[in-house]
Amino acid sequence: MIRIRKIGFKSASAMAAVAVLALGGCGRGENGWRQDPAAAQSEPTPPQADYLKPPRVISAVRQGGGVALAGEATPLASVRLGAPTGEALLGKADGAGRWRLVVPLAAEPRLYGLSMTLEGRTVQAQGYLMVTPNGRGVLLRAGGGAEVMAQASSSPHILAIDYDHSGGAVISGVAAPGAGLGVRVDRTTRGEGKADDAGRFTISLSQPLEAGPRTIQVAGEGGEQQIVLDVTPPQPPTKGPVRSIQTALGWRVDWMTPGGGVQTTQLLDAAQ
Rank of each mutant, 00 (worst) to 15 (best):
S154R: 08
P54G: 14
V20K: 13
A169G: 07
Q263R: 05
D197E: 03
G260S: 09
P241V: 02
G91L: 14
R3P: 11
S42V: 13
L229T: 00
G82N: 13
R252L: 13
G25Q: 11
A179S: 11
T232Y: 01
V170K: 02
E210D: 03
Q151M: 09
L139C: 07
A70F: 11
A60Y: 02
L23A: 11
L267K: 01
L114V: 14
F201G: 10
G143D: 04
Q263I: 06
G135I: 07
T232D: 02
Q217H: 09
G143P: 07
T117G: 10
L69D: 01
V67N: 02
R243I: 09
V242F: 06
A49R: 12
G127C: 06
I245H: 04
V218A: 08
S13T: 13
R121A: 13
G127Y: 00
D164M: 04
A96D: 08
D164F: 01
A195R: 02
G168S: 09
M15P: 07
P55W: 00
P258F: 01
P234E: 02
R200T: 08
A106T: 10
T117Q: 06
E192I: 03
K239T: 12
A219I: 06
T122P: 06
A179T: 10
G223A: 07
G144H: 09
A40H: 05
V174A: 10
K92A: 14
S244D: 01
S166Y: 04
Q246H: 03
L52Y: 03
I245N: 05
D94F: 12
R80A: 15
E224W: 13
V79M: 09
A107Q: 09
A96R: 13
G260L: 11
G27Y: 00
I4G: 06
A88Y: 01
D94A: 15
A195V: 10
G261I: 04
V61A: 12
L229W: 01
T238M: 12
T85K: 11
R136P: 04
P44R: 04
A17R: 12
A142I: 08
E224H: 14
R190K: 11
Q48S: 11
I161N: 01
Y163H: 00
R252E: 06
K6F: 07
S115Y: 03
G199Y: 06
M1N: 14
L69N: 04
E210N: 10
V57I: 15
A12P: 08
T189S: 09
R62K: 15
K6D: 05
M15A: 11
A49F: 11
V102W: 02
V185F: 03
I245S: 08
T264C: 04
A270F: 08
R190G: 08
G250V: 03
M1A: 14
V18S: 07
C26W: 04
G220R: 08
G259T: 09
L52I: 15
A68L: 15
Q63I: 14
A195K: 07
G193V: 05
V183K: 00
P234A: 03
D186W: 00
H165D: 06
A160G: 08
P109R: 05
R34G: 15
T132S: 01
A270K: 10
R100W: 13
S244M: 00
A49I: 09
P55M: 10
T264L: 01
T238W: 07
V79C: 12
V18E: 03
T232R: 06
N134A: 13
G97M: 15
